[in-house]
Design a protein around this nucleic acid. Structure first.
Lengths: 111, 111
DNA sequence: TCAACTATTCGGTGTTGCTAGGTACCGGTA
DNA sequence: TACCGGTACCTAGCAACACCGAATAGTTGA
């Protein structure tokens, strides 16, 4: 899509990945591939891996190394309690934003 | 709200301001005050001014200096044709994002 | 052996919002 | 007069994030 999406993803991509992990555990390569299928065609692999490192360091996920049949071992991430809490806060913040933008879109903008 | 909102605003704040200007011309101080009323309580003034400079340099807005009764002259910004086009693309990108996130929130996440 | 796929990592870059100041003009008050 | 608060704008330095490009490493099949 372009540069606008890149900037919008700042802050939301983290929530997206956490939301994915709230469904079930997953590893980086898998997440990247899935996102591409969903239309996030130009998401960089490096971006996802860096994000995963970040949320791991913040203690939002548990990690387990699992051998793969076809390649190097996978690092499988799963949401922990703190991650679930953080995800809920993410949804609240997201709702706040979407509500304001919905208002603006409807033309309810009287500054 | 916190750090999550700060990151989310990257990319969307620009659209928000453009959307405001699509309603009617406005100046920085006014926009900041209005956003604070709308719940964006911790938006920094400097952020808005820097953003306005940016969109001006990109040719998305017209600027007019208007004297004020109580203070220095105001710089009143209004959306031009290119800005309107850019705003439409913003809405398309925004729709794309919200649709994916709506899906994820509903639990339609099978990575 | 070489290519292709799987899987992760890393350094450097550009954009963005925040912090924390500063400048300047005006009206009211002590 | 001197000073403060409200109005209005600007700026330099910082941190966080996504992207780019490349490297590394294991497995399978031609």
């Amino acid at each position: 899509m372009g540069k606008q999406l890149t900037e919008m993803l700042k802050g939301t991509l983290e929530g997206i990945v956490l939301a994915i992990l709230s469904g079930r555990p997953a590893y980086g390569y898998e997440i990247t591939a899935w996102l591409r299928e969903q239309g996030f065609s130009d998401i960089a692999e490096g971006t996802i891996y860096a994000l995963l490192v970040r949320i791991e360091q913040r203690g939002l996920v548990d990690v387990e190394k699992v051998p793969s049949e076809k390649g190097p071992p996978r690092k499988v991430y799963s949401l922990d309690a703190q991650g679930r809490e953080y995800l809920e806060e993410f949804w609240r913040t997201w709702s706040f934003l979407t509500e304001r933008l919905e208002q603006l879109r409807k033309g309810g903008n009287q500054p």
